[in-house]
Design a protein around this nucleic acid. Structure first.
Length: 110
DNA sequence: TACTTGACAAAAG
DNA sequence: CCTTTTGCCAAGT
C-alpha cells in the first residue's frame, strides 16, 4: 500500500487545494521536491480522470494562471467550475491569480 | 533499451 | 504581450 508514486503524490497535494484557490504545476512539483518535474504534474493530471477520488484539477493552472488543460475536461469546463467557486476567469485566464495563488510549500509546510 | 509525447517553466528575441 | 527555443522528468510505445 505504501507505494509512493509520483502521481499519487500529486493527487494528494491537489486534493488539499481549498475551494476558491488555485495553484500552479510548478508549485506542486516544487513541493514534491523537484520544480523541474512540473511537466510530470501536468502529465499526472491527464490521468487524474482515472484517479479515485477525482482530483480538483480545475484548481491547477500554469504559472500564468492560464487554463491550459481546459480542453482535457469532459462535461463542465474549468471556467465554469472555477467561477462556481468564486474565481473570475476571463479568456481562459484566472483573474487576480496572484492573490488566489495557493502554494502548498507555504500553506501546508511550516 | 531507445524514441516520442506532454494540462510546464524560464529565458531570449 | 507574443512566439520560439531549451531543459527537465515520467510514461507509453
Amino acid at each position: 500500500m505504501p507505494d509512493y508514486n509520483f502521481y499519487d503524490n500529486v493527487y494528494d497535494v491537489v486534493r488539499l487545494i481549498p475551494a476558491g484557490r488555485v495553484t500552479s504545476y510548478g508549485a506542486i512539483a516544487s513541493y514534491l521536491g523537484s520544480k523541474q518535474s512540473s511537466r510530470i504534474v501536468g502529465y499526472a493530471m491527464m490521468a487524474c480522470s482515472n484517479a479515485n477520488p477525482p482530483v480538483p484539477a480545475h484548481r491547477v493552472v500554469n504559472r500564468q494562471g492560464m487554463l491550459t488543460g481546459k480542453f482535457h475536461f469532459r462535461g463542465d469546463t474549468m471556467e465554469q467550475l472555477l467561477q462556481n467557486e468564486g474565481i473570475q476567469v476571463i479568456d481562459n485566464q484566472v483573474q487576480n491569480f496572484r492573490e488566489l495563488f495557493w502554494d502548498p510549500a507555504i500553506e501546508l509546510d511550516l
